[in-house]
Design a protein around this nucleic acid. Structure first.
Lengths: 222, 222
DNA sequence: CTATACTTTACGGATTTCCGTAAGGATAGT
DNA sequence: ACTATCCTTACGGAAATCCGTAAAGTATAG
């Protein structure tokens, strides 16, 4: 079993249970931190001392508070860790059930497992940790397997997400062309943008852009 | 101290910590349930047996699963319990930090405390329970006190929420008049509706209705 | 009952979004 | 090099929204 594991989780209620799971798996060294920045520091430090962490278990959403933090979410922490220490195994662990976000963790950061906090998360986390140690296969809760079969998460691409994101921050279709040119997204003609919004409206059965953004927000796409 | 407390919380990770808090407060009878419906059943049952619960600690969001449930959220559970057993003290306990939802719990259901799950929730929950036992005053985390000072939550009324809700489900301004008449909301003329949307746009500094709905969703208003 | 202030409704023109058609460009196969 | 196909862009009229002004309706004080 792993001998050195780091937990990044801001909600104090949860660490007790996570620690308990790891203890039951006989992990001797369990370190716990409430901030992403601290987590990265600890991982760096341990690597320098030639006693690196073998597994990172991290939440996705961290509440902002008085502290100034560089890394503000689990995604950012995961990205940073993957960049610097690709050999560390990573399990994300969150209340999040929005398929797009979960899928992108596997696709972009190649995480080793995802456990959804729910009625059955303790045994699931145990399985995920065991699996990460034993194999190189990814672990995903049964109930979430639909994510990789689900069309939505596969057929909606980054362009769509960007577009919806700009809509949601109030960019008018008129200004979208300029905006897209500004940040280098193509295609960026007014006509193309109109057409794509229309496709999305049909895809999500939305009546208008407002409805579309509401749906996308509910799905966790933006 | 309370002698009989019910916890309603669907995430298995959390109950360990909550139980621990209550044990430290020397509560002898701590019952735990993962479903709102079960919680209400237990409360009814205990009342029938003349050994009622004195305190309910409940989460707000419960994940839907295979089980058919009547009560689907903490709000609904709280509403039902307040209706039937007004003397039971209630503490809500959630990751939720959206001011409108929290404020409405105090305003509509007169809950006795709200604890936000965060980096410091264990001592907070302890304080909230002690406070609920000792006094009839409401308990709210320090960091959330702004909610009752915040203009937004006070100046936005139910009409606004309804309006934004309909926008977010794709009702056009054209159809809004008919919709409002249908469900008996006034004022309902197209002109009034336009004006109100305009007010909201100014209030929230939104460029258009799409932006407005996105902001409202981020604030947890809808 | 009347004057006043306030809210709601009606209306119309400017702006934006919607949506179809067609022209222009790039790419791949022959 | 030619053609078929697909993607992007241009354009224009219909529909929806935006926004100001004015009329109609309501409540209240005197």
């Amino acid at each position: 079993m792993f001998t050195k594991v780091l937990i990044a989780e801001d909600i104090d209620f949860n660490d007790i249970a996570v620690k308990q799971v790891l203890q039951e798996l006989n992990v001797p060294e369990i370190i716990y931190t409430k901030y992403c920045d601290d987590a990265l520091l600890k991982i760096r430090g341990a690597a320098l001392e030639n006693n690196p962490y073998q597994l990172l278990i991290t939440d996705l959403s961290f509440k902002p508070d008085h502290r100034e933090n560089n890394l503000k979410s689990g995604e950012e922490l995961i990205a940073a860790v993957r960049e610097l220490f690709p050999e560390i195994k990573i399990i994300a662990f969150s209340i999040e059930d929005k398929s797009y976000r979960i899928k992108s963790l596997f696709d972009n950061f190649n995480i080793n497992g995802f456990v959804m906090k729910g009625r059955n998360s303790i045994p699931e986390l145990k399985k995920a940790v065991q699996n990460a140690f034993d194999t190189d296969e990814k672990y995903l809760s049964q109930e979430l397997n639909y994510i990789f079969r689900d069309k939505t998460t596969n057929e909606i691409d980054n362009y769509d997400i960007q577009l919806i994101k700009y809509l949601s921050i109030g960019v008018s279709q008129d200004n979208m062309e300029a905006k897209f040119k500004e940040v280098g997204i193509t295609p960026n003609s007014k006509s193309s943008i109109e057409k794509r919004i229309n496709k999305l409206k049909i895809y999500f059965k939305a009546n208008n852009p407002t409805h579309l953004v509401a749906i996308a927000k509910d799905l966790g796409l933006v």
